[in-house]
Amino acid sequence: MTNKVKIGLIQASNDVDGNEPVQLHKDKAIEKHIKLVRDAAAKGAQIICLQEIFYGPYFCTEQNSKWYEAAEEVPNGPTTIQFQALAKELGTVIVLPIYERDGIATYYNTAAVIDADGSYLGKYRKHHIPQVNVGNDGNGFWEKYYFKPGNLGYPVFDTQFAKVGVYICYDRHFPEGARLLGLNGAEIVFNPSATVAGLSEYLWKLEQPAHAVANGYYVGAINRVGTEGPWNLGEFYGQSYLVDPRGSMVSIGSRDQDEVVIGVMDKALIREVRNTWQFFRDRRPETYGAMSSINE
């Protein structure tokens, strides 16, 4: 297996107003993203990650039960099955963030990981669920209305090209899970997001490079672009990027364009950095017990 792996990060706008039917959003977004995945594969991408709940708007801006209709089973839902066939056709790994329904009416913010032969490797469920007011108009990040906290731990998926971990959007503010993904063997961690200017943009290029350095792996950070009606919560500012274990930007996307961001990860650099900075050797887990026993 080669040390160098080409990564594709897909950022895109939502083309349908949130007042429209849920299925219309899904159909148009899936059509758009299939084209973008094909574009990424044509550019040589071997692992491709889409943005958070890619097949619609960021509906968590409001609390409306109609969006439960967007949820599907994973892996037996139609979108996962469709992208399994696409991954097999293109010979690419796909990290597919969708809205998951488990059983009758339990919902998670989830990413399925599909190997390059089309096989389903497993899923990650977002652990940290925000409930944050943004502005004075009632809009915000009302995710607790839609998602139960993840309960599958911090799995790492051994794909044909690299060992892949997933952390979703708000998770990125919590270093504990990022460290566990490193301990579990991740060579690259993807963070598909939906985040707007004015709230956390100043952290966008700070936290995740720090995770990459602290844990000696690559991070692929993905954010959508544009504004979404009728809520107009703010501008999704794009700037999806790949960052290496030294904290250096490998590639970065634009602020406001649908785009496939391509970058190359080098596993030899992971070994080099970890041999220099022995953070895993020198950690002292026996002294960290208070982290899980102290509640504020």
Rank of each mutant, 00 (worst) to 15 (best):
I270Y: 01
C169G: 02
T276S: 15
A116E: 11
G177W: 04
G253P: 09
G91S: 08
D115G: 08
D102W: 07
R101G: 01
G216T: 02
T159I: 06
E31V: 08
E89L: 13
K66N: 11
L121Q: 09
D17C: 12
I94H: 09
R271P: 01
L269S: 11
I294M: 03
T106R: 15
A70H: 11
S65Q: 14
K148W: 08
V156M: 06
D266G: 01
G247C: 03
V113S: 05
K35R: 12
Q131C: 04
V196G: 08
L121N: 08
W204H: 03
I98A: 06
P209A: 14
R255T: 11
K43Q: 12
F54V: 15
V189A: 10
N215M: 09
N136S: 04
Y167Q: 10
Q63N: 09
G234I: 02
V273I: 14
L36M: 14
Y107W: 10
G289V: 01
E73I: 10
P57C: 10
E272Q: 15
I30D: 02
P149F: 08
L181Q: 00
S254V: 00
E176H: 07
G140P: 07
G165Y: 13
C49Y: 08
Y107F: 15
F83P: 04
T80S: 15
P192W: 05
D117G: 08
V189I: 10
A290F: 10
I34D: 09
R101C: 04
Q278W: 01
P78G: 12
N19E: 07
I252K: 11
P78S: 13
I129S: 06
P97R: 14
D39Y: 04
Y99M: 11
N76W: 02
K123N: 08
E207S: 02
G234E: 11
K267S: 00
L24A: 12
G18A: 04
Y217V: 06
Q131V: 02
W67F: 14
V134F: 13
P57Y: 00
I10D: 05
P97Q: 14
C49L: 09
N19M: 14
T80L: 15
A221L: 00
R284C: 13
F236R: 13
E201S: 12
R284D: 12
T227W: 08
K32A: 14
S240P: 04
F190V: 05
N275A: 01
K148N: 09
F279E: 02
E62S: 02
I168E: 04
R224Q: 06
K4H: 05
I98V: 15
